[in-house]
Amino acid sequence: MANFDGEKPIYIQMAEWIEENILTGVFPEETQIPSTTEISAMYRINPATALKGVNILVDKEIIYKKRGLGMFVCSGAEQKIRSERKQEFCDKYIKSLISEATKLGITKNEIINMIEKGCDGNEHN
């Protein structure tokens, strides 16, 4: 179960949680996602906060509201999230990886070796 107790504002964590679920196929495209009431009760967060999180995704055209029915995942949402996350990947992981490696005195070649090893290990699985 997700826990919205990180340092980021809760509405952003909630939007990211929905995106994560779309990306992993928990909420497939063109299917309904839980209502803000259900989400806020489940995770004990203020309904206004949940609504704020949902509205971010409506603005990004990741989800849409069907009047009287609820909220649905837009078609193409998964691809949209994936390409956005790819862009963030460099900032979020590569930069922090390099800064940590510099602290530990790991050279560029060593990093590349480690990445290759890691990727190979993943492929075998």
Binding site: T37, A41, R44, I45
Partner: peptide, 13 residues
């Protein structure tokens, strides 16, 4: 406590 927080959110909704 957890149950109470859930009830607060539910009732408020």
């Amino acid at each position: 406590r957890d149950l109470f927080y859930k009830h607060v959110v539910n009732r408020y909704s």
